[in-house]
Design a protein around this nucleic acid. Structure first.
Length: 498
RNA sequence: GGCCCGUUCGUCUAGAGGCCUAGGACACCGCCCUCUCAAGGCGGAGGCACGGGUUCGAACCCCGUACGGGCUACCA
């Protein structure tokens, strides 16, 4: 495949936010362009005026940037082939229609939608494909011009060549695919309201933008022969196509909202790292070899090739994404992780968004305690919440376990006394103190750790205890031990109202 | 209905006729490590949709069947 003049595009419709399926299409296009030192073009296909919004466009651009995509031409960066909003290209669409009318490849059709429906209906179209019957194609020119002149509603259709035979493409992912041209309807190019249909607009735009490879979802494969016909009528060079399969939900249906989060933003908000999502998405339908799972952006660009894109649909696997995200989190330095966690703590009101100074807790110091137990950045907030505030609320089940532990009161008292007497209050000293308790009390080490853990963190599950104590500081640690000790008595009284 | 596309462990995939006793990853199970939870280490279970060919030899090639998906709009 020639590296010369590779120009690919991602053309989302701003009718919603960036979907993970769309994101994967964008990634493959981007990686292909970068691999071949070509151009990655972003075009906003906003022809659906009712549902397209500027907010959605902005959200899509932001999501793409977040994923690390950069585009050589498109909104915000411009380019020689603009405009990059499809609705602003109406003039060239109309010019293309005019040239098709001039060449006789497009003709006016006055059939109404109702007429078409009733004509199509008559039961099972045995053998025939039951499409448009091309009746307006043979209208006398005089009739056509007079009806147009009198304002009759009409669409413009492509006159599919009678003797076209097989329409064949060499798909970069699927190989050779062909369709008999006879089953192609004379598709509508321009609607009665004067706007171009999707198939017409994209072909005209891709042609004029000199797109060399059209890399898109499988759902467009069946549109391809129609588009090829349009390219041919236009006298345009047909680009190379590459159809990647769709992403499915676990039920084998196309991924949609009912399968859970489907927008890139939702994953960002849930605490996924962009590099993890990128990695996961890239691997969903493509692979480098038989064992590489984690790889960075540069590797993706270096190794990406369409020939290694799989032809069968992939099921979205949230578990694997979570695992991968965790793997990326573990690879972050404490400072980096601290920075990345900040927005989530800030959202919970625990820390300042800007992170300058004056936080109750230094996130860079929290990060190493959390990094191996996080799947998502947002997990950190719950796991580290106990570090904020003076006292901590103890979970009911954890309190019950603590209360049932033999010698719990003694453990809490002894721990408080000895931790209080410490020269320097750090993790190592705290560990030494707690480990020595079984030497002076008839208790098991495990009970010491768990009792203190519950008292200090509010739960039987927490980040490493000794480091947590250090982060908490002597004062708060002692206060919590005392509070837990008191709660034991209260529980006794409550349980024994006599 | 018609036209297309697809089918390797539960999931993502490696595999382009002998390297396959089908490899890796997630998930799952067990053991180890261990202050809880994780992380990590080691091990285990688990798959070529089915039926015919072609070939000395097929997960890989051909045909059929089944199943899934897409398109069949004046949606994109």
């Amino acid at each position: 495949m020639s590296t010369e003049n590779v120009r690919v595009r991602f053309a989302p419709s701003p009718t919603g936010h960036l979907h993970i399926g769309g994101a994967r299409t964008a990634i493959y296009n981007w990686a292909f362009a970068r691999h071949h030192q070509g151009a990655f073009i972003l075009r906003i296909d906003d022809t659906d005026r009712q549902r397209s919004t500027d907010e959605n466009t902005a959200a899509i651009l932001r999501a793409l940037e977040w994923l690390g995509m950069d585009w050589d031409e498109g909104p915000e960066v411009g380019g020689a082939y603009g405009p990059y909003f499809q609705t602003q290209r109406a003039k060239s669409h109309m010019e293309a229609l005019q040239s098709l009318r001039d060449s006789g490849d497009a003709y006016a059709c006055f059939c109404t939608a109702d007429e078409l429906a009733t004509r199509r209906d008559p039961a099972a179209p045995d053998g025939s494909h039951g499409g448009y019957d091309r009746r307006c194609r043979s209208l006398p020119p005089a009739t056509i011009s007079s009806r147009i002149a009198s304002g009759d509603q009409h669409v413009w259709r492509l006159a599919v060549p009678e003797e076209r035979g097989q329409i064949e493409i060499d798909d970069a992912i699927r190989g050779e695919v062909r369709w008999p041209a006879e089953v192609m309807d004379d598709l509508v190019l321009v609607r009665s309201d004067g706007t171009p249909t999707y198939n017409f607009a994209t072909v005209v735009d891709d042609w004029q933008m000199a797109i060399s490879h059209v890399i898109r979802g499988d759902d467009h494969l069946s549109n391809t022969p129609r588009q090829v016909l349009i390219y041919e009528a236009l006298g345009a060079r047909v680009p190379r196509f590459a159809h990647m399969s769709l992403i499915f939900g676990s039920d084998g249906k196309r991924l949609s909202k009912r399968h859970g989060a489907t927008s890139v933003e939702a994953y960002r908000d849930d605490g996924y790292l962009p590099e993890a999502l990128l990695n996961y998405l890239a691997l969903l339908g493509w692979s480098i070899d038989d064992k590489t799972t984690i790889f960075d952006r540069e590797t993706l660009v270096r190794d990406f090739e369409l020939g290694r894109v799989s032809r069968n649909p992939a099921v979205w696997d949230p578990d694997k994404l979570e695992w991968m995200n965790g793997a990326y989190i573990r690879g972050l330095s404490p400072t980096e992780l601290g920075t990345r966690m900040r927005p989530y703590f800030a959202k919970a009101g625990l820390v300042r968004p800007d992170g300058t100074q004056g936080d109750d807790v230094d996130l860079d110091r929290v990060a190493p305690l959390l990094s191996e137990r996080m799947k998502r950045l947002s997990d950190a907030v719950r796991a580290a919440a106990f570090l904020f505030g003076d006292l901590v609320e103890i979970e009911e089940v954890s309190r019950a376990k603590m209360a049932q532990t033999d010698g719990a009161a003694e453990i809490l008292e002894a721990a408080a006394a000895r931790l209080g007497a410490l020269e320097t209050f750090d993790a190592a000293s705290a560990e030494a103190v707690l480990r020595s308790l079984p030497e002076v009390l008839p208790v098991k080490p495990k009970d010491v750790f768990q009792t203190v853990r519950v008292a200090v963190t509010g739960s039987t599950v927490s980040p490493p205890l000794f480091e947590s104590l250090e982060l908490l500081g002597r004062e708060r640690a002692l206060a919590r031990l005392a509070s837990a000790r008191d709660s034991l008595d209260l529980a006794d009284h409550a349980a024994d109202p006599g």
